[in-house]
């Protein structure tokens, strides 16, 4: 099985501004999460891989095929769910999805059959004969998903699929995405600013920051090797005692960082025992009001990647780290 996406010094310049800077990396997951703050270049990367934008340098491959030009057989094997509200008014749901299937190369009869299937799969079976402009936001999102997968693409790009969805619709959308991933026939790239969505659906992430790769992580490996830590809330009348407690822990080799709400993040010893914390607290006269064992989640991975990335886009080379 070839790599899903290979990037080799891929740069994209739009409107005289470089949006993506020499991206290099290989993505192999069955569900790849594309993460990054607003303006990081997530959508630009997707649009470049779809051929909407030309690259200004470097190259990229999807499933082993270069993205340059409009290779029809490659495009027929891709699916795309746009981020924004997009539809063709005047068509019913089934007409719209059938048209998209036909444009992807399916014969009319098969396209109709697959359109019905995709709409049922997306939970729009009852609404499939309604005009798409009458659909609610949630229904339109489902419709966008249905048209993206109707032709059974090998790779589907989902750009912010849970945008504007209420909690129930969001759960349903994530369930559909997981089902798509677990089906095994379609690889997917999920761009989202919601870390939970990515954590729930993806097995690999690419973090973009200021148009550069901040990290590429195998989430499965990260989950297996999750680093533990203690989340601690202290009570102390004297700030000096609190500082002394922290200094003693640092001396003992523990990493400490501040968390919101005055809490502390203390790296966990290999045996995971809090005895050391209590002993030092007793010695320095501080009271541990709350102590919770925690593990690194995607947010921690994401924040570390963003913090490690160069702030100045012109400061240095690519910060890619493929695991």
């Amino acid at each position: 099985m070839p790599d899903v996406i290979e990037l080799e010094n891929l740069s994209v310049r739009l409107g005289g501004r470089e949006i993506l800077h020499a991206l290099t990396g290989v993505l192999q997951g069955s569900a790849i999460g594309l993460l990054g703050p607003n303006g990081a270049g997530k959508s630009t990367l997707i649009h470049t891989l779809l051929g909407f934008f030309p690259s200004s340098g470097g190259s990229a491959r999807i499933m082993g095929e270069p993205i340059g030009g409009r290779n029809k057989s490659r495009l027929a094997r891709l699916g795309y769910m746009p981020e924004y509200d997009a539809y063709i008014p005047g068509l019913t749901g089934v007409e719209f999805v059938k048209l998209m299937a036909e444009l992807s190369g399916l014969p009319a009869e098969a396209a109709l059959e697959r359109a019905h299937e995709a709409l049922f799969h997306a939970g729009l079976g009852e609404a499939r004969y309604r005009r798409v402009e009458t659909y609610s936001t949630g229904m339109k999102q489902m419709l966008k998903l249905a048209q993206a997968i109707v032709h059974s693409p090998r790779l589907v790009f989902l750009d912010e699929p849970t945008n504007g969805l209420d909690p129930a619709a969001r759960r349903r959308m994530l369930h559909l995405i997981r089902a798509l991933r677990d089906g095994g026939e379609t690889r997917l790239v999920l761009s989202s600013h919601l870390l939970r969505d990515v954590e729930e659906c993806c097995d690999e992430i690419l973090v973009l920051h200021l148009g550069r790769i901040a990290a590429i992580r195998d989430l499965e490996a990260e989950r297996r090797a999750r680093r533990g830590y203690w989340q601690v809330q202290l009570v102390s009348e004297q700030p000096s005692a609190r500082e002394a407690w922290q200094a003693a822990l640092r001396q003992a080799g523990r990493e400490i960082s501040e968390l919101p709400g005055g809490r502390l993040r203390v790296s966990m010893p290999p045996d995971g025992s809090p005895r050391e914390l209590y002993q030092l607290a007793q010695r320095w006269g501080v009271q541990i009001r709350r102590l919770e064992p925690k593990h690194d989640d995607l947010e921690a991975i994401f924040l570390r990647a963003i913090e490690a990335a160069p702030e100045n886009p012109h400061a240095g080379g690519v910060a890619s780290a493929h695991s």
Binding site: R70, P82, Y84, G105
Partner: peptide, 10 residues
């Protein structure tokens, strides 16, 4: 904004 649907296909 439906153009992307067409042009993301062959």
């Amino acid at each position: 904004q439906a153009l992307a649907y067409y042009l993301s296909r062959p």
